[in-house]
Design a protein around this nucleic acid. Sequence first.
DNA 1: TTGCGCATGTAACCAGTTACATGATTTC
DNA 2: GAAATCATGTAACTGGTTACATGCGCAA
Lengths: 179, 179
Amino acid sequence: MGYALLGLLHQQPLSGYDLRKIFASTPIGEFSDSPGAIYPALRRLQERGFVHGVVQESKGLRKRRVFRITPKGLASFKAWQSQPIVRDDMIRRSGELLLRFAFMDQTFGPERALAFLREFAKELSSYIPSLRQHLDVDANEMPLSGRLALESGVQDYAARLRWARKSIAAYERRKKEKL
Amino acid sequence: MGYALLGLLHQQPLSGYDLRKIFASTPIGEFSDSPGAIYPALRRLQERGFVHGVVQESKGLRKRRVFRITPKGLASFKAWQSQPIVRDDMIRRSGELLLRFAFMDQTFGPERALAFLREFAKELSSYIPSLRQHLDVDANEMPLSGRLALESGVQDYAARLRWARKSIAAYERRKKEKL
DNA sequence: TTGCGCATGTAACCAGTTACATGATTTC
DNA sequence: GAAATCATGTAACTGGTTACATGCGCAA
């Protein structure tokens, strides 16, 4: 979740309360908007030197602490985004992959975003057949609900692959238009 | 994850090592096969009286502790499966919903599984339009990668809804055949 | 003056990750 | 006798959940 905060703070400086509102009101993945999650996370980021908070006393309201990302924080964010996509990311951290992608235009530009999508699609299209094969094997000895639940996983991956291909096309279309 | 263990132990008695192998070799959601996750989880279940472990010394191998679910454990498992489906489950605990469904044929039979799917589909089909609407609003001020990442979320839910409807049809088809 | 929205925080609890430790048996 | 497999566990670390606590300014 620290990276979600860094990504948002890279767009603009925000207070903990601002971040809570963002998590509460927009469908940005599965992040918690509870103060018990956000304020400790901001403190950790500050301890690592990734963000820097300044108290603002203006405007009659209670003083707020506004955080901005540091160069060190941005470097760490970019390093995180640049990690290769491995199968385990696909299986157990798909939300994190989407988050890495969501901020890619801002940090690296469309060319890198496109490269990310291609890597994503490639990894997915190699995973899906092996998953499907596995299911076909041991689906026989399972009750219908179990079989369907596994099938749902395959459908999810297939939908994500379609999304990736559509997104690749969107980037390529935009590239052409710019020429 | 405790519920995943209970569900598997309801099918048959298993040792911690057996459970690790299942998590390692089958695509049952996103569960960890590490001993540091499984053995403490089994101990907790035992402390709550949900499972009971018996040491087996047979067969030359190292002794293994085989767990079976208790009536109390089964009751707790069923109560978990019977919770109403709320929107927050859909958004932040979709894996848990699928897990609840996966074991439903065994615990409650096809009629309840079908009811679960209908509730699931209903909740989803009310959520998707509101999500889509939200996206259309604030997608304008976002870079392409951010917009696409949010779009991916919508696609996921749409795929899940299609899956639910297909699954409902599968249950209804089977019901007809039985008559 | 009661309550609401703004705004920040803490503390107990729970559970997964990573890494380490141990020991028995089988296979090459 | 070394390596692989079977089998169980612990400990430090990390981080989210839930619930509580606090305080300001404004409007009904």
